[in-house]
Each structure stands twice: as C-alpha cells, then as structure tokens.
C-alpha cells in the first residue's frame, strides 16, 4: 500500500502530510518548553535570591555553542537547498557538517556539565541549577534525537534519493524544520540561563 500525500499536497491543507504533521509536533514541543520556561519564571519570581547566570556558568562556552548551533542551522538548510539544486554530493557534505556540529555542541555541553558536577553544583545544589540542568538536559536530548534522524538520512536513508528524489527532499525539509526549532529554543535559552 502506498502512503498518501508524501509528495503531493492534500487538497484541504495544501501541504504534504509529513510537513503538516511535523508542524503540529513542533507546536506541542513549543508547549513542552513553555511549561519549563513558565516554571523558570515561577521559581525566579518566588525566590528571595537568584544568581546571575554569567557568575555561575561559562558565557564564552555558551557563546561558542550558540555560534555552533546557528551554523548547523545554516548547513541544514543548505543541505535541503543542495537537493533542490540536484546536487547530492553537496547535500552529503552539508548534512555531514550539521551532524558534526551537533556533536561539537554536545561535547562542549559535556565539559560544562562535568565542570559543575565536579564542583558539587549538580541539580540538587540549588533551584537555579535544578532548572538549568532540567531545561538544558531536555534540549540536549533533542540534539541527540536530531543527530539520530540526521545520521539516518545521511547514511542508509539517503538511498531514497535514487528512487524518489522529491520525497527524499521533503524528508530533509521536515528534518530541517525540527533542527531549526532546536536552534530556536537555544536562542532563547542562552540569554535566559547564561546572561540574566
């Protein structure tokens, strides 16, 4: 049985099912992070003292990671544009760079986490570190999820390019939407947790 509307658009939505589905998923993701941001506001407003992020965390490391994640968003959209221009070689290069940058982000995060944990500043240390580890931990899990999907599309999943070019291009666009969302969340996390 053929899956409907993987390439053709549905007459009622004007979109392929995959694209509409991922936007609905991202809407639910917005609410997931909204709950945590809301918790952050509640904890901060209700506390007697709240540390400045720049006194507790490493701003240079987070700045570097912000640059890494923004760059990975560019390479992701370039991977999609390469397929649109029928250049599979460049697609492989750009998606490969996206995956590489994702690992760089996680490695930097590992050094940040291990520094704080060795200093006894785990999630149990105070409310600030509890919300810091919860939100960045969830974001990190999203990075890992993105790596798994992108690695599949870079490797075995790329075979689809030989048989269904347009469908594969749609898959990359959808994976890109998710990846840009992960970048977008970090764009707000960085100032909220590190700079204020």
């Amino acid at each position: 049985m053929e899956i409907p509307y993987t390439v053709d658009v549905r007459p009622d939505t004007g979109l392929s099912n995959g694209k509409f589905g991922v936007w609905l998923f991202l809407a639910s993701e917005v609410m997931l992070f909204a709950a945590l941001f809301s918790s952050y506001i509640l904890l901060r407003v209700g506390s007697v003292e709240w540390p400045h992020g720049y006194e507790e965390l490493s701003v240079p490391m987070a700045f570097f990671n912000t640059v890494v994640l923004i760059t990975s968003s560019v390479t992701m959209v370039m991977a999609w544009a390469s397929l649109k221009m029928n250049d599979f070689g460049k697609f492989r290069l750009y998606l490969g760079l996206t995956i590489l940058l994702s690992f760089v982000f996680l490695i930097v995060k590992y050094f940040e986490y291990s520094h704080h944990l060795h200093a006894g500043e785990g999630p149990w240390h105070n409310t600030y570190y509890a919300i810091y580890f919860t939100i960045t931990g969830l974001h990190g899990l999203h990075i890992i999820g993105g790596i798994v999907v992108n690695a599949y599309l870079w490797g075995p999943g790329a075979k689809m390019w030989q048989t269904a070019k347009e469908r594969f291009t749609n898959r990359i666009e959808i994976a890109g939407l998710y990846w840009h969302f992960v970048d977008l969340v970090w764009i707000f996390l960085f100032p909220v947790l590190y700079l204020l």
């Binding site: 968003s73 890109g176 939407l177 840009h180 764009i187 707000f188 909220v192």
Partner: peptide
C-alpha cells in the same frame, strides 16, 4: 532573542 528567533523561523523554516 525574539528578532533572532523570528529570522530563523521566517527564513530557515
């Protein structure tokens, strides 16, 4: 952050 997020959403997404 809102300007940056909007740029990502409008152009990359």
């Amino acid at each position: 952050a809102t300007i940056k997020g909007s740029l990502v959403a409008m152009f990359f997404m």
